[in-house]
Write a protein that binds this DNA or RNA. Structure first.
Lengths: 343, 343
DNA sequence: GCAGTTTCTGCAACCGGTTGTGGTCATCGT
DNA sequence: ACGATGACCACAACCGGTTGCAGAAACTGC
């Protein structure tokens, strides 16, 4: 183990350049470098270069009270949607010199709270909350203490914070329209948990979409899944087929549920799309590799993340701007899991 | 916008408890709380509770010179392997009060360097490098300045740092053994880029495995893919089939390459596993949902991450411990993309 | 040549914690 | 009754930056 000489501080740079550390600080900061003589500024810069000086971010944040860091709360990085949105967030943030601090909540409200506080004590400048629950005391609390927050793919009953999300309602309508256009009339919806904001709004949109086509509730049953998982989707499909064997199309609350449905259809020796058509939601990676490739509503997750980050940065710049809300268009990508019903 | 009163500092707590902030600090820290009278300690604690005091992590790190933060460098979060290992890292770290700071390098050596420095200036206590290149000046540099580093799924030509990785050689042997046991003798390998540590070692292991079965190099061709992507895998397969139409089995450098191969086989109207068997590597999510479900070498990514984190923490505790290296066993999961060759 | 600016740089305080040192006071032994 | 011991706490310095303020030097105009 070689003797570790600690990294140089601004005092070292100042000493080498023969100036006071305050001057060195100003010389190195582009915003203040015009307060110092060009020649000395050059001396400082070259001293910094020689020492390979890297400012201590912690010390800087402590004194400036700005950390250039954003807390990002997501349910679970392992869920295939989130890497995309996180990448979107990071890409947008890094363009402006910001960094993301990630935390997983596993959809546990308590963890959500503790992680939030941990990030606060790390002095993040703001939050992007991509957690799924429809409501949480956290939100009111954060709102009251004036914390900058942007909600991603999740809305609250009252508009406390700006939200960026896909236009789920439009996506649902596109999916239903597609099925109806193919000739389906008995369409089921496997909804996500209504405790989650997406499950709730997509379910509502489904009701409205089928109503728009004058389909009776009796031929358009909704069964709620306990979670956005394959197992839960399979179980729901089992219940659905038991009670409504006559349906010819399924619109799943998301792709994981669709995956479970596909599995269960296979168990029941039902061909997809021959016997029943299937539409998913999200267009997650690899669903185009399934057999049959899944028709699904594409959600631009990367862009979702990027927009959320941008919105948050805007808000940090000018805190009293109205809480604009972004809704990204979604489009249906038609693959091979949908076809006309057998007549 | 409500008036934001800044979060309480330890000085506020001390004032409320009627003690000096040094005393408050000691009272709040379990390691030093026995240096203060039990009664006053209680006063401090309850004052802290009343004010909802949360220590400022930045200030603490600045003075203790320990940030309880680990820098994690990965190529791309969007690559389906990494969410798993990141989760493993985070789970292991959080158990000990540490946090991970993530950065993507996109396999760009320059980005790797700048991200590394950015993390250094954030005063991370150590690094987990899961980037893929076989060598990088960074490593020597980090080694010289005594930075704590653990390499994940990547090795260097000289043993500068502890490494945790899957036992790739064993995995490759298992895959080849399986194919040979099925009766295959003309087995091709679609290797990953040899500039990457995994591509290199798996390729070498393949050579050794086929040699162990006395298969001639002429019947066991290796073609190198430019990258670990589906497209690259498809292109390599095209070349392979042009030059060696007689092969009956393909062992792919990873699952993405296998995906490309599968696609290309389909283009050539070759049935898998009827005409050619296919084995992947990694067992990424959803490869069990392909048609046919992919036979592949399972890599415990979560555990890989967790072990790396643990190793790093151990090393931080006792810096001059020998650089132990962890090699996790890998096992082949046999699904339906492999079968005996047509006789 | 002198008052008034402007430009440049140093001083010192501050951000919010941690920790070494030393002083006060009660307790103890003799 | 008095010095020694130890428990407890306050003081102050420090981590490595940033920034308001003031003073020195140079420069302006008259």
């Amino acid at each position: 183990m070689i003797a570790v000489d600690k990294p140089p501080t601004i005092a070292d740079v100042a000493r080498l350049a023969g100036v006071h550390k305050a001057t060195a600080s100003r010389a190195l900061n582009p915003r203040t470098s015009d307060q110092v003589n060009a020649a000395t500024a050059r001396r400082v810069v070259s001293a910094a270069k020689r020492l390979r000086y890297q400012p201590n971010t912690l010390a800087r944040s402590l004194s400036t009270r700005r950390s250039a860091t954003i807390g990002v709360l997501i349910p679970d990085l392992t869920n295939p949607l989130f890497p995309l949105v996180v990448r979107g967030i990071e890409d947008a943030l890094s363009e402006q010199g910001y960094t993301a601090l990630l935390a997983n909540t596993d959809n546990d409200p308590e963890r959500e709270q503790t992680q939030f506080e941990a990030l606060l004590s790390r002095k993040v400048d703001g939050f992007i909350l991509a957690t799924a629950r429809r409501d949480h005391p956290l939100l009111r609390q954060a709102h009251q203490q004036g914390t900058a927050v942007v909600l991603l793919n999740r809305s609250t009953d009252e508009p406390l914070f700006p939200v960026v999300a896909g236009d789920d309602a439009a996506g649902v309508h596109a999916a239903v329209d597609h099925l109806v256009a193919l000739g389906h009339r008995r369409i089921a919806h496997l909804s996500g948990p209504t405790a989650m904001s997406t499950g709730f709004t997509r379910g509502r949109a489904f009701r409205s979409a089928v109503a728009a086509h004058s389909l009776a509730p009796a031929e358009t049953p909704v069964v709620e899944c306990g979670s956005y998982t394959e197992d839960s989707g399979a179980a729901a499909t089992r219940r659905l087929l038991a009670e409504h064997p006559e349906i010819t199309a399924i619109f799943a609350g998301n792709d994981m549920i669709a995956l479970g449905a596909l599995q269960e259809l296979r168990e029941h020796r039902l061909d997809c799309p021959g016997d029943v058509s299937l539409v998913g939601f999200n267009d997650m990676r690899f669903v185009d590799k399934l057999v049959p490739p899944l028709t699904t509503v594409h959600v631009p997750h990367h862009q979702l993340g990027a927009e959320a980050a941008q919105l948050l940065l805007d808000q940090l710049d000018s805190p009293d701007r109205p809480a604009k809300t972004v809704s990204l268009p979604l489009d249906l990508v038609i693959r091979q899991s949908t076809a006309p019903p057998r007549s």
